[in-house]
Design a protein around this nucleic acid. Structure first.
Lengths: 258, 258
DNA sequence: TCTTATTTGTTCGTATGTATT
DNA sequence: GAATACATACGAACAAATAAG
């Protein structure tokens, strides 16, 4: 006979973890469709004969995993987007080949998602770490290109690219529409073609701005990536700080041996 | 006048977050030394005039960030180890140059830490995904080299390397001590020198075994990395599944443009 | 715009279980 | 075995965000 899954104190696993496992399973089996709401916490508490506090703890586990998104006053919503794959090495090539779409758009189209992004360009005082990498004096102004990126109108990436003004002032890169081929083609046209890319990444809690824009909980994590583009002459001509919700992305790197 | 930091209901930020911020700040300022215990939760509850439940929530935040480690019945201990940097591209080179230390040891010595690792070698039935990558029939036996790695006797990495038996059977790689130069030198000596490396990584909750060995909480995250070594002929000759506590590591990748 | 019902967020007090010392 | 310390659970209450009217 079929037996309704139970949450029980007899089980050595904590009740809120048992319930989190049940809900996760139901979501993965498609019993709660992406974009739909879970039953209210009070409802689940009644159904499984536990306190609402216990349900809240169980939902917190799923939030941390990025499986659901909670809106107070509204409900608990099952995440809509699939995991997106970012190919760090291949993505530069896409632009260089004159592909008009851009790497981000290509990544999303692969999954049948619609890409959209907002760009903001400004001259800003370089943060200390950026100034050092770009080898400009602390307090010097640099060009900052800030992008907010969306998949199906869900925010999925924040990126701020810093460029030295002595290279890019007056060029296409100082415009909102930086022109064909992307940042690296433009840098090459200006005589500063990147020869080597370095990405340093770590996992950390989101800051307040990231929490707001990426709609994250404090318990979720972001992947913070810093990419440095260096010319053959050894000069770093761009630093790009990229922030991704950790649960939303897969990263791929490929390089030759030796 | 100096005023003792307070946790207050007037503050719009939740009390447990206020307290987590206070404790995090104190730890970062060195007011709680690495390896030492925080005051007991009941103590903190009294001191800040909040319930122990609220203190427990605050500590949970710090646990999730990997800032403290909790041992029931004992206390809450401040994390001892610094963040370790893993240079994915450079680490292969280290072994190839005949450096006797190995990449992992080099990474740790850089920080003044002592490296130790246990190795276990066995022939196992290839998991489905591994069998497909190595292009062997499902159910075929492969060689598995499993490593548990420690920094100052703290577990910091789990790695399982899978190799096809038709290449490595009877070779040094089938022994506990695989011999000089590391896995890739040995593969080269067997006529299967890797030409390209691919790493795919994602952030996820630890499974039960990882939780136990890496001493993680369910709320913490691991970086799961799959590295594939491919020969010039296009054959994948090794798959290495690497698991790192996400808060404990920085990753670095570097590659040439174009 | 204001009101009300719904739903999640947070906190408290209390109690019990489990691991360590 | 006793004392200590964290883990989890319940019930209750109020706050805050959302939606419907």
């Amino acid at each position: 006979v079929y037996r309704e899954p139970q949450v029980s104190l007899e089980n050595p696993r904590a009740q809120y973890r048992q319930l989190a496992d049940l809900l996760r399973g139901a979501i993965e089996r498609g019993e709660h469709a992406p974009g739909s709401s879970l039953p209210a916490e009070s409802e689940l508490a009644r159904h499984y004969s536990v306190s609402r506090q216990t349900v809240n703890n169980a939902v917190s586990v799923l939030r941390g995993e990025g499986l659901v998104r909670v809106v107070r006053g509204k409900g608990t919503i099952v995440r809509e987007l699939p995991v997106i794959r970012r190919d760090a090495v291949g993505r530069q090539r896409i632009r260089e080949t004159g592909d008009a779409r851009g790497a981000f758009q290509a990544e999303l189209e692969h999954l049948g998602l619609v890409a959209r992004s907002d760009v903001e360009v400004a001259e800003v005082t370089a943060p200390a770490a950026i100034a050092e990498l770009l080898a400009v004096d602390p307090g010097t102004a640099v060009l900052a290109r800030r992008r907010q990126m969306y998949a199906n109108d869900v925010p999925v990436q924040l990126a701020t690219s810093y460029l030295p003004l002595d290279i890019v002032a007056g060029s296409h890169l100082a415009e909102m529409d930086q022109g064909a081929g992307g940042t690296y083609s433009q840098l090459a046209a200006l005589g500063h073609a990147p020869a080597t890319f370095t990405e340093t990444l770590r996992v950390r809690p989101p800051d307040d701005e990231e929490t707001r824009f990426l709609r994250l909980d404090a318990e979720q994590r972001v992947l913070a990536i810093r990419r440095e583009a260096q010319t053959a002459a050894g000069r770093i001509v761009e630093v790009n700080d990229i922030v991704l919700p950790a649960h939303q992305w897969d990263l791929v790197y490929r390089w030759p041996a030796g």
